[in-house]
Design a protein around this nucleic acid. Sequence first.
DNA 1: CTGGACCTTCCAGTGCAGGGGAAGGTCAAG
DNA 2: CTTGACCTTCCCCTGCACTGGAAGGTCCAG
Lengths: 129, 129
Amino acid sequence: MRIGELAAATGTTTKTLRFYEDAGLLHPAGRTPAGYREYGQDAVARLDFIRRGRAASLTLAQIREVLDVRDQGHAPCRHVEDLLATRLRALDAQIADLQELRATVAQLHDAARGGDPDTCGAEQVCRYL
Amino acid sequence: MRIGELAAATGTTTKTLRFYEDAGLLHPAGRTPAGYREYGQDAVARLDFIRRGRAASLTLAQIREVLDVRDQGHAPCRHVEDLLATRLRALDAQIADLQELRATVAQLHDAARGGDPDTCGAEQVCRYL
DNA sequence: CTGGACCTTCCAGTGCAGGGGAAGGTCAAG
DNA sequence: CTTGACCTTCCCCTGCACTGGAAGGTCCAG
């Protein structure tokens, strides 16, 4: 199939597919005599994997690592497990950071809600922030 | 004071201060005969405000809005309150999204943790993702 | 044989908040 | 007089994952 069909079949765009090829996530596609890219079903499976990886918030670099392991003939299960564990820890840290930030912002907002603009001094930009 | 002193006094860099001036967060500074920027104490207060805004995860554009209101002679309290409320809602949404994502990744990780690499078929990249 | 849908490559831009570094001017100390 | 610290403008680079658009080639239906 050609690039447009593959894009439609995997819910992405031709732009993205060429970008993935440049980024090393897709093997350079075979070409028709006219120079058009030609893909087989394996490309669909590969893109489905990439999509699942993206859905799990893995970066393209991480997904490529997994694909590289697979392309070298090894089962990437172990690598995927490590990746997911790392991602999980990062997500926990990120959520904790955001919750802390939320508490700070909520505190500021509580102080500002009920404030009287007329009592603002001109020597500072805003006493509520 | 000169730009390096101001940077040291506010815990930032000269690069950032020039960037803020370009971005409209700082008024164009006065210049010495040699062309050096010259700042007063008000610049320190302004940068402290910017720093607090950044700490509350406001964007530079949002902070500039507040400063613009202030510069036009109005107390920005009300504007700040709205901004904080909006930021709070965005943070809640972001935290909820991340928690959902975390659940998904945790599920994948649980499935992968106990898996046997030898049972992986070659027809897919990895059955755990 | 022409129109339109598709394909190719290449270059540039998006958003965000700066950072790196070059080429050159200024100032005070030694 | 020179050294070194500081300042100036200028332009490009970073990360991340694309997206937009121009200029041109290919293919098929009418």
